[in-house]
Design a protein around this nucleic acid. Structure first.
Length: 565
RNA sequence: CGGGGCGUAGCGCAGACUGGUAGCGCGUUUGGUUCGGGACCAAAAGGUCAAGGGUUCAAAUCCCUUCGCCCCGACCA
């Protein structure tokens, strides 16, 4: 491709709308342009890179035995009512009516559609297992679109769904996708960390996320320094510290703490450490108040609470409920004397005495012994894990990191197959419900994650596997006829070997071409100039290295092929 | 949805406090000189100053409302 014939609008300045490197570079290198918040046009260079990622995804899905289909992006409302997810996802779905005044939505995901399809088309155990996938645009009315393609209202996703006759089969289907994902991200040149994950709105029994480690990542995770354990913070467990054995606490004692409400205020006022305090949170579980206790220096993890309460709906209590339940204004709740269920973080067993709210205005209690002075319904791991916590598997210290979620695999179970009656007849002629798994890759997000993980001061550094072109061919002086001829010949010779190049034939000064070549970051740069041609040579350089090599023109094609193989 | 920041030429920004002819750099067009790391000279085009309303003799500038974009948060009493 000739630069002058395509559309690669590079930018010298950083657009003020972009915050993180990958977003800045996608705009500066002319890969994408914004239409409005969370909506982007792919320009030729960005589209080519996207297609290469898609191709890797497709090849690996096919290799894993998955079947490609293409489902509609526009869905009638009824199918979402059928699964009961219309209400769950209504705020995230773009909703509209057709001319018959029929309610429609743009699909944020496709469990409903694919399960309906399979329910009608597959009837026998002989047809199972099946994994069906598509690469398609998804629509989500995100609360806050962010960072260019990272979180957009419209994005390309590879979504796959497996249907199995039994749980052993699901295990195999899941593992096949897991392995395919590992290969996909490896081929994309990404270093990913696989973490245990929360299943969230999707439901199901277990799941793993594929995370690209990056400071700009939206997800927090911990990884063990001693073993392979790693988990999303929404999920991450921790081993409680050893119990403190000695000392019976003095009797419970109420002290005045006028206007001190927060942990920090009370701790400073009473000269105790925050971890000696108990943070008491009032929640509504199925609209009934419950108390949740975590150490004063800890954050409650609502995902963990929800799991501990077996998925019953929870939400934080409003001020009125808190006052009614505790008999005190906000900031003075404590476990002693509460007559509602009390769920406590396991770490609170560590200390024999604590400081907590007294359920009375402007007062806290000291020498609180949970076993003696309160009735705890149950202990769970409820606090959010963090740097330095002990690994739940091996007890070693854990590190906290941030990551970009590029892939997610779930074992779904029968949640959807039951609703849509996705059933088959087994060998004995009995009707059985299929067991499902679902597997997603954010293709557009993966593309940006590649740039986030592979760039330098000068611009993008494309891994050869996803680079939009194999090489930049710079004709330094387009007035020099021989340069142009040699460059054209090289371009077609390389093209004949399946290596597409970008020939910079613009009437620009060499500096501009060098800068732009670094910015768009193709793996190789081939410079054709009057100077090197005097020796019948061209200069070849890898993007990520400084070293340049002069190669005779006649050997250039072989040399490039070797460098890229 | 709450908080904060920002909207002035294609991009990056100044001008606003203290109201009075809308500017700078890059880019674009034309001509010339240049040609291995974002050249130089000359000329030119390009703006409803986000939108609407108000104050004023006069508004990019002061006031009000709305919209858009970006960031943080949306749970910790």
């Amino acid at each position: 491709m000739h630069w002058s014939k395509t559309l690669i609008p590079t930018l010298r300045d950083i657009p003020q709308e972009a915050e993180i490197p990958s977003h800045q570079l996608m705009l500066r290198a002319g890969l994408i342009r914004k239409l409005s918040g969370g909506l982007y046009t792919f320009l030729p260079l960005g589209l080519r890179a996207l297609r290469r990622v898609e191709r890797i995804v497709r090849e690996e899905m096919d290799r894993a035995g998955a079947i490609e289909v293409l489902m509609p992006a526009l869905h009638p409302r009824e199918i979402w009512d059928q699964s009961g997810r219309y209400e769950v996802l209504r705020d995230v779905m773009f909703r509209m009516r057709d001319r018959q005044d029929r309610e429609m939505v743009l699909g944020p995901t496709h469990e409903e559609i694919v399960t309906d399809l399979v329910a009608h088309q597959i009837n026998s155990y002989r047809q199972l297992p099946k994994t069906i996938y598509q690469i398609q645009t998804k629509f989500r009315d995100e609360i806050r679109p962010r960072f260019g393609l990272m979180r957009a209202k419209e994005f390309i996703m590879k979504d796959a769904y497996s249907f199995d006759a039994d749980w052993e089969g699901v295990e195999q289907s899941y593992q096949a996708m897991y392995n395919a994902y590992t290969r996909i991200f490896e081929r994309c040149g990404l270093r990913v960390k696989v973490v245990e994950a929360d299943t969230g709105a999707m439901g199901g029994s277990s799941s793993h996320e594929f995370m690209v480690l990056a400071d700009s990542g939206e997800d927090g995770l911990v990884e063990c320094t001693g073993c392979a354990y790693a988990a999303n913070l929404e999920r991450a467990e921790r081993m409680p510290p050893a119990n403190e054995s000695k000392g019976d606490p003095a009797p419970l004692c109420e002290v005045k703490t006028p206007h001190r409400r927060t942990v920090e205020e009370v701790a400073a006022f009473l000269h105790v450490r925050p971890e000696e305090m108990i943070k008491t949170l009032i929640y509504l579980c199925e609209e009934q108040p419950v108390a949740v206790l975590v150490p004063g220096n800890r954050e409650l993890n609502e995902h963990k609470l929800a799991r501990a309460l077996e998925g019953r709906p929870i939400r934080m209590a409003d001020e009125e409920t808190v006052v009614k339940t505790t008999g005190a204004p906000l900031g003075f709740a404590g476990p002693a004397g509460l007559r509602i269920p009390v769920y406590a973080d396991q770490e609170l067993k560590t200390l024999r005495q604590h400081v907590a709210g007294a359920n009375r205005a402007d007062a806290h209690v000291i020498h609180l012994n949970l076993a003696r002075d309160a009735s705890v319904t149950a202990f769970f791991d409820l606090a959010t894990a963090r740097e330095g916590d002990m690994c739940p598997r091996c007890g070693a210290s854990m590190r906290e990191k941030r990551g970009i979620e590029v892939g997610h695999v779930f074992k779904l179970g029968t949640k959807y197959s039951e609703r849509f009656q996705a059933q088959y007849l087994d060998a004995e002629g009995r009707r059985q419900t299929m067991i499902m798994g679902c597997y997603g890759i954010g293709v557009t997000r993966t593309l940006q994650a590649i740039i986030e993980q592979s760039h330098d001061e000068q611009g993008i550094v494309w891994p050869a596997t996803v680079a939009p072109y194999a090489a930049s061919l710079l004709v330094l002086n387009t007035e020099h006829a021989e340069s142009l001829i040699v460059a054209e010949q090289l371009a077609s010779a390389l093209s004949a070997c399946g290596l597409e190049t970008l020939l910079d034939d613009r009437d620009e000064r060499p500096g501009v071409k060098f800068k732009d070549a670094d910015l768009i970051g193709l793996p190789l740069r081939i410079v054709v100039s009057e100077r090197s041609l005097a020796e019948k040579k061209v200069e070849i350089k890898r993007r990520q290295e400084q070293a340049k090599t002069l190669i005779p023109v006649a050997e250039a094609v072989d040399y490039v092929r070797r460098m890229l193989s």
